[in-house]
Design a protein around this nucleic acid. Structure first.
Lengths: 338, 338
DNA sequence: TTGTAGGCGTTATCAG
DNA sequence: CTGATAACGCCTACAA
């Protein structure tokens, strides 16, 4: 069933059918109704490919993330997809994993499919080695690239992210003010956001006049149990009384460590997570966590994208500040309150 | 840059270019090399829309799930997308939420986009009221529909799922054998899988000669905290010593309840969750959970789909049995062991 | 307000 | 082995 069939049954030309299809005003009400009724009757569906061919767009955006089984990324995907669909854009998803080669391949795949734009979720897409981001610039030469929770400078690349450094700095200062003497920063990898968070941590210690030792910066990319064991080992030679983790899963590893080590949380050990994911409410005690306002970030990114796709301009970079949700892994009292 | 341009620069016809593109053997090695080199030089990318138009497929499958922020559904999406991509199919994602109207709309959207097949994840897509599944049958009239973790009979509809009833029956028997006298079944809604699980629970009680009272079947669809409070209220008038929950989040609500009520887990209260999601390892004590082998289910569904798309046949329904992962919310000793 | 005709970039069917 | 040429279904000047 195509516009020819419809035009025949309605006794008009295909141009008229097309006009009705596209809500063109130059059609008399009478014929419009006639055409419309035939369409209904025949359950006509315009062919998306043919339309894409001439318009050179199928109203589709490519969504890239490392892995939707990560609750944080999964939430982002869910928000983005729904908001995009509300603007009648659909989402082509790629779960790339963390290997550079796969990320590259997926990007090319989506470009070859003529998506209207790309949204990359997570700073894992941005390499720290200069030159390694060339693939992103090449993609941006074709379609607008929006990076969520990461940032990269370049033509046609737009970043919206949360100020991770500031957030961690604030949270660390809070830990110190609540009486923690030896905080430790726990993170997975030297991604952009990992580095930013680390920077915030170091800044906070600097501010309070402490020197940061290398031992206080712990890299551990593993499961909850592995994280726990990693901290157990560390605690042997470097006792610490607070952990600031770069995501909630790591923070839960820290909770498990505290219990295993016989520490009271938060009295002997304070813990702060990052992302305020649903995990924060599943552990015990419930986790104080930095909330980087994911839904807001997604909304922002989508409206930004809609501007771009409608030919308007948009800021290269949008930075928002985080929130912190206090639960039961941090002390409520502060030194100066006592 | 299109095949005309390429054909000119290579001094051949577009037909030859097309042949090279499609690995047709009827091209001399010499010309093939020439064309290939021009393509490389010009960084030629075939237009996916044009190709879709003639072939009437863009090698795309529609993935429908209620919400990827649910870790279970997020994992399923991740597995499916990657496995499909390995077969060079891409995934158009729709997060439909739980409203029937939205589910319908998304389905139509994807059909209109000429996806090659549809994969529905979760039994939430199957309505219990007869006639309400008409929309699925209509979709199946166009493209194969694969249901993951749900089942529906119909032409061109294929289901692969875990035997939830059996799994719950087994787990409940286990609870009873370990000494639990008053188990309670906790679930979210009368979806297909909800009902199956309930059925398994009732069967287990029947087997052990107990009569099931309505109070033992608790419906609660809310957050962890809401679930906790719901159980607190129930415990007032119906003391129970075991909870079998239809997902891990509910089970964690039960853990929170146990702690609030001052019950020892698992001595006073045994708890079993469902899905064996990452949540099971984040709570404390860690959750015994039924594992419905999600990854295996996803693999099965994808290979099944590949069969269908290659014109081969496939079984209407594949049922696998679940596993149970014992952690710390259930007793290790059994009545007969003592 | 309506219709005609050309074009979008492929694939596929014929001849040669 | 290669090349014309007709689809595929829609959009859009341009004409009427």
């Amino acid at each position: 069933m195509n516009i020819y069939d419809i035009s025949q049954k309605a006794g008009v030309s295909i141009a008229t059918v097309s006009r009705v299809l596209n809500n063109n005003k130059n059609v008399s009400d009478k014929t419009r109704q006639r055409v419309l009724s035939v369409m209904k009757e025949e359950e006509y569906q315009p062919n998306a490919f043919a339309r894409g061919l001439t318009l050179n767009t199928m109203k589709t955006v490519g969504l890239l993330c490392a892995d939707t089984s990560d609750p944080y990324l999964g939430s982002a995907i869910s928000y983005l997809e729904q908001k995009l669909r509300a603007h009648s854009y659909e989402s082509l998803l790629c779960c790339t994993g963390y290997k550079q080669s796969q990320k590259k391949k997926c990007l090319e795949l989506l470009i070859a499919r003529h998506v209207d734009a790309l949204v990359l979720i997570g700073s894992s897409f941005i390499e720290q080695t200069t030159g390694k981001n060339e693939y992103l610039h090449r993609a941006a030469a074709q379609v607008p690239v929006v990076i969520l929770n990461g940032s990269l400078k370049g033509a046609n690349i737009y970043s919206s992210l949360c100020d991770d450094a500031e957030a961690v700095e604030y949270a660390t200062v809070r830990l110190i003010r609540s009486g923690c003497q030896n905080p430790v920063f726990l993170y997975r990898a030297d991604t952009l956001s990992g580095l930013k968070k680390k920077e915030g941590f170091i800044r906070a210690l600097d501010l309070s006049g402490q020197r940061v030792s290398d031992d206080q910066i712990v890299m551990c990319s593993g499961t909850v149990t592995e994280t726990r064991d990693c901290l157990l080992k560390l605690h042997g030679h470097l006792p610490f009384d607070a952990v600031l983790a770069s995501d909630d899963e790591l923070a839960i590893g820290a909770i498990k460590f505290g219990k295993k080590a016989g520490l009271r949380i938060p009295d002997d050990l304070s813990i702060i997570g990052y992302n305020n994911s649903m995990l924060a409410k599943c552990c015990d005690p419930e986790l104080t966590s930095i909330d980087n306002r994911l839904e807001y970030l997604c909304s922002t990114s989508v409206s930004l994208l809609m501007n771009l796709l409608n030919g308007k301009s948009a800021p290269d970079k949008t930075v928002i500040s985080a929130d912190i949700v206090i639960r039961d892994t941090t002390r409520k009292t502060f030194k100066e309150d006592i």
